[in-house]
Design a protein around this nucleic acid. Structure first.
Length: 262
DNA sequence: ATGGTGGGCCACCCA
């Protein structure tokens, strides 16, 4: 059963319901994983999604912050969630499609401004979140699984507009890149996006604070699609829908797509 | 070096 999935940090699912519907209508992924819904689950606007065929949804939410959801037009059962690092935040949800593939949807903490856990508690929480993920995947090796989400780290030099200028900027510091690599290795995860697009600059996020995000193009690849080795070879046709960053009332993230022939 | 723009929600926190 071949299928296409997308992952998108939506920065308020209620405010951006119109562009979620636009994405579903125009691109029609089978599965859409959202992060930063910023909504209690019972206030997510599901009717329009269901009318387009996305009748399955699993989600975790809280008022005002965080929140993750998976919309699907393929039958999907809820697997559960885990409160990594004990933060009490809605940052993870997992589901299983009827083809047996498990999907983990993550919103990793952004980590604040200063890359030093001694002076910035949020940076420590980000690293702790990732090491908790690492330990969990190490203890229980995932199989037939896909991990997507806003991991808030751009690991490669060509995942950022300037490697040198971002070395001390949270999202691209060596300690974050190393910690993310440990998490990836612990699960045996393959970076499907870079398997498909091995060379060149690739971004999924552009700050709201630029005069002209498109012309300046100071982006970072914060949003990821990983798969376990038993299904990673089935992954193909990865892409970033950069156009969505220019839609009306946009998220600062663009959706990342991948397809799987399984 | 600084401040720039967004969202949630009503005083700020967060990205």
């Amino acid at each position: 059963m071949p299928f296409t999935l997308a992952t998108w940090n939506i920065n308020s699912v209620r405010l951006r319901e119109p562009i979620v519907l636009k994405l579903l209508q125009e691109e029609a992924p089978d599965v859409l994983c959202l992060q930063e819904c910023k909504s209690p689950v019972d206030k997510i606007p599901t009717e329009g999604f269901a009318a387009l065929g996305y009748t399955h949804m699993i989600a975790r939410g809280q008022k005002g912050y965080n929140g993750v959801a998976i919309l699907s037009r393929i039958p999907m059962e809820e697997v559960g969630d885990k409160d990594f690092a004990g933060l009490g935040h809605a940052r993870h949800i997992a589901g299983r499609l009827e083809n047996g593939v498990t999907i983990h949807n993550f919103y990793v903490p952004a980590g604040g401004d200063v890359p030093d856990r001694e002076v910035n508690e949020k940076f420590g929480q980000k690293l702790d979140y990732l090491t908790d993920m690492r330990d969990w995947f190490h203890a229980d090796k995932p199989q037939k699984s896909i991990l997507v989400g806003d991991l808030n780290i751009a690991p490669r030099e060509d995942d950022v507009w300037s490697h040198k200028q971002l070395l001390k900027v949270v999202s691209h510091t060596p300690i974050e890149v190393e910690t993310l690599a440990e998490t990836q290795d612990a699960g045996g995860w393959v970076d499907v996006t870079r398997q498909d697009i091995p060379d060149g600059q690739l971004y999924s996020w552009w700050s709201y604070r630029a005069r002209d995000w498109d012309a300046a193009d100071k982006g970072r690849r914060l949003d990821h699609v990983w798969a376990t080795p038993d299904i990673s070879n089935a992954g193909h046709s990865s892409r970033v829908l950069r156009d969505a960053r220019g839609w009306e009332k946009p998220s600062d993230h663009a959706p990342v797509f991948a397809s799987f022939d399984l």
